[in-house]
Simulated assay, not measured.
Amino acid sequence: MPAQARRIALPRAARIGIATAVTGVSFALPLVTAISAQAHTAPAAPAASAAAERSAAPAAQEGYRVVSGDTLSKIAAVGNVEGGWHALYEQNRSVVGADPNLIFPGQRLALPGRAAAPAKPAVPAKPAAPATKAAEPQAQVQVRTEAAEPAEQLQTQLQVATPTQVVTATPVAAATSGFVAPLVAPKRGTAYGVAGSMWASGHHTGQDFVASTGTPLRAIANGVVVKAGNGGAYGNEVEIRLADGHYAEYAHLSSIGVKIGQTVKAGQQIGLSGATGNVTGPHLHFEIRNGSEYGSDINPVAYLRAHGVAL
């Protein structure tokens, strides 16, 4: 037998079978690879969707923490609360209590539905990422809505939102709430609620404003004069019944410029400050009362701030 390898002749059917088997393997490999790649990449879309939902969760559910100087009116105005401070008060009656004019730093208020904010210009789409970064995770989705402003950001807005109010001594147009301060450029003296034996109730029933004799005093809102004369320890006094049922009391006047039964408008001059009655010097003693008589007082500064007056 020759030394070279012998060539074995196979039947035609056997040769076709071997060729088919080898060709089948060459086609099967790409198919398995494609299936494996699809199995690893398919969950990416749900992951990105879940991240977007987490980013879109409204941070406004955290509520709002009251800081010094806040009022329901200011919070409702800057927070764009539908229904204004009335809706805000109804939502938080259990926290605030019976008097909506009295809120205290540290109280946590829930913010009800907010009015729709003006539409903002569409943000241009960012250019597509280079092809080399196509395999990077795409779960960094950021969603921002006006309703999701953090409470801390809202507090920052509140501290700068109220402009300085400029008024004159003559009758002027009231603020948008219909209220003004009892005198121009008010400078506060002894605060409401200060304890002391010099007061019959055991505490200061009003807010004192620094005012030299002859300073014009103004009606804080529309109302009817119910007192105009000497009030004993209050000296010359004027009391106005306001449209919401509260009473505004002005004490120690040097001059009275209105009469009982007279209707007055917000900003109208009602008299001049002085030092009559039980005082140590000229100033305006100003009260807000639930009723006409002594002892039904509430915090006048909180009341005015709740009606949009900056003090």
Rank of each mutant, 00 (worst) to 15 (best):
V143F: 01
G267R: 04
G214M: 10
D208C: 10
P105M: 00
R144D: 01
G79W: 01
H283Q: 11
S49K: 13
A45T: 14
V66T: 05
V167K: 07
V166Q: 12
A200I: 02
A191G: 13
R93S: 09
S273T: 15
D297A: 13
V143D: 13
G193A: 15
Q207H: 11
P127N: 11
N299V: 06
E62D: 05
Q159K: 02
G261Q: 14
S197Y: 01
P118Q: 13
E90W: 12
N290G: 14
G178I: 12
T164Q: 12
L111G: 05
A60C: 12
T276N: 03
G189F: 00
L311K: 01
G178W: 11
S201V: 03
A39S: 10
M1C: 01
P163T: 05
D297V: 08
G84K: 05
P43K: 08
Q157P: 00
L111H: 11
G84Y: 05
Q107V: 09
T33M: 05
P118S: 14
G63W: 07
P171C: 06
T170H: 08
I220R: 03
A275C: 08
V67R: 14
R65E: 12
P43S: 03
F286V: 04
T215D: 12
Y89S: 02
A148T: 02
A37E: 14
V67A: 13
Q140Y: 09
G267F: 02
V238F: 05
A13P: 06
A135W: 14
P105Y: 03
G106S: 10
A60D: 10
G235H: 04
T190N: 00
A3H: 07
E90C: 05
G267A: 09
Q159G: 01
Y294R: 06
K265R: 15
E152I: 13
P58N: 12
P171I: 08
L72G: 03
A306T: 08
K227L: 03
G308K: 07
G229S: 05
P58E: 04
V224Q: 11
T132P: 00
D297K: 01
A52I: 04
A98I: 06
P100H: 08
A52C: 02
L284F: 07
V167P: 00
H252N: 05
S296W: 02
A19I: 08
A56E: 13
G17F: 07
Q155I: 03
